Amino acid sequence: MKTTANILVLLISMVALLSCNQRNSANGTNRDWDSDKKLVAQNDSVALYIQIVDSAKDEFDIPEVALWIKNKTTKKETKLYQTIRPDWHCWYMADGDRFYPVPIDSILVTSRVKIYNYDPLQLIVEGCPDMRNEFSYFIDVDKRKAWYVPANQGYIGSTSEEGYMIFQSYRYVSDPDIAGRYTFLQIFDETGNLVDSLDLEHVRLKEYRNAVQTN
């Protein structure tokens, strides 16, 4: 009788454990879900993960990744998009004065994610697909819409009072006697239009002229 009772207790324990694991899996709380995903951003409501779908082929390649959003309340996981590997490399990506709409399934790279706005949930995703230029995208999650940001060195923050997005680009000095780049800062509003900029070419030109006069 004692042996039978022990067997019954063991069976009941196994059934309870199996039921618990099934509930956790259904709720998205099982540990395995996050095992191949990297947490890149989060707030009190959501967590964003990058999952490598297809690894880089060599040192000059980039992986294809998927961006997942996990609702912390409902535990629901949603795949927002998957990047597509570019079949080209660009020497120079010019800057611009407005965001350009692109299909959300045409994003080339995602290695960093910033939450720009909580409600509605809006993201800035970035990466470097050509080992030279940073590519940035602005994404409205609820509308599933994306825009390419014409800035080649990425997002650096927002203005404290207005909440405008600050991106930076590099440009080449216009004087042919001076080699090298200089910084061009771009400030965009929430609609993706350039509201102001800071061009530092005059600083490089002044430094060069002062150096020439000194020599």
Rank of each mutant, 00 (worst) to 15 (best):
A211D: 07
A66Y: 04
R209E: 11
I52C: 04
H202F: 14
D58Q: 01
F167N: 00
H89N: 01
D95F: 08
S55R: 01
I69V: 13
P103Q: 13
C90K: 04
S45H: 09
L200R: 09
R132H: 02
N30Q: 04
L200P: 07
D189V: 14
S106F: 11
A151C: 04
S13C: 15
Y208S: 08
Y49M: 10
P176S: 12
E77C: 01
P101V: 15
P150F: 13
V109R: 08
T3Q: 04
Y118D: 07
S45Q: 03
A26R: 00
Q51V: 11
S13E: 09
I156Y: 00
C90I: 05
V102I: 11
A41T: 04
K206L: 05
Y137R: 01
E161D: 12
S55I: 09
D34F: 06
N193T: 13
G163M: 13
T78W: 09
T183W: 01
F138Q: 01
K57G: 11
K76P: 08
Y137G: 06
F135H: 03
E59S: 11
L198D: 14
L39W: 14
D196N: 05
L8K: 05
A41C: 05
M93V: 03
K143T: 10
W88F: 06
V195G: 07
I124W: 00
F138L: 13
M1D: 14
R209L: 09
P129N: 05
G96E: 07
F167W: 00
A56D: 11
N6K: 15
P63T: 13
E126S: 08
F184P: 06
D177I: 11
S160F: 10
Y164G: 10
H202K: 14
I50F: 09
D140Y: 07
N152E: 04
L17N: 15
N117C: 14
G180D: 11
L205A: 01
L80D: 13
R85W: 03
N210G: 06
L121S: 06
D199R: 02
P63D: 14
S55W: 01
D142H: 09
V102G: 03
N43R: 06
F188A: 10
E134Q: 08
I50A: 05
R209D: 07
D199A: 09
V125T: 06
I166K: 06
N133E: 06
P120C: 14
Q22H: 03
M1R: 05
I52V: 04
A26D: 05
K114V: 08
T74F: 01
D87V: 15
